[in-house]
Amino acid sequence: MSQELTFTSPTVVPGDGVRFSAYVVERAFHALLLSVDAACSKLGPVNTEPRQLLLALNVNLPRIARAIDAKKLPSDGRTVVLHARDFV
């Protein structure tokens, strides 16, 4: 799915993580949530402040795209949560 994968603007959900969507033009659209645990343990923010979580997401988009590619994504519109175990 990462060919031409496009990310929407992220929103921090306090206590949960960073919510965003990823899609391939004219194909699949998926709602995603990068968990705080995944962000902090795998993507390296200094702390859990919204600015740091957003920075971690933005500088790690290629890694996040690989994690999305490796997951089985539902076709029913449910939000997919990216956990620490989803990152190699």
Rank of each mutant, 00 (worst) to 15 (best):
V46H: 06
K72N: 11
L33P: 04
V36H: 05
E26F: 14
R85E: 04
V59Y: 08
G15I: 00
N58S: 15
L34C: 14
V24I: 09
E26V: 06
A84D: 14
R66M: 06
P74A: 15
A67S: 07
R66F: 03
N60F: 07
A22Q: 09
T8H: 03
L55A: 12
A22P: 03
S21I: 01
A31V: 06
V12H: 00
V24Y: 02
D37T: 14
T48Y: 08
L34W: 12
V24D: 09
F87H: 06
N60I: 06
N60M: 06
L53S: 04
F87D: 04
R85A: 08
V18N: 01
L53K: 07
L57C: 10
T8V: 00
S21W: 04
V46N: 09
R51S: 10
D37V: 11
G17C: 03
A39K: 02
A84M: 05
P74G: 10
Q52D: 12
L57R: 10
L43C: 10
D86S: 06
T79E: 11
E4F: 02
S2H: 01
S2P: 01
S2W: 00
L5T: 03
F29C: 14
T8P: 01
V59L: 14
L34K: 12
T11H: 03
H30D: 12
I68S: 10
T48A: 15
P14N: 00
L32Q: 05
V13M: 03
V18I: 08
I68P: 03
L53Q: 07
K71Y: 04
T8A: 03
V36I: 14
F87Y: 07
H83I: 01
Q52N: 13
D69T: 07
R66H: 10
A67T: 03
D76T: 11
D86W: 09
G44D: 05
F20S: 03
H83C: 06
Y23R: 12
P10C: 00
K72P: 00
V25C: 05
L32K: 04
C40L: 15
T11K: 09
L73N: 12
P62N: 12
R19A: 09
V18D: 01
S21E: 13
E49L: 14
K71T: 07
K42F: 02
R63L: 14
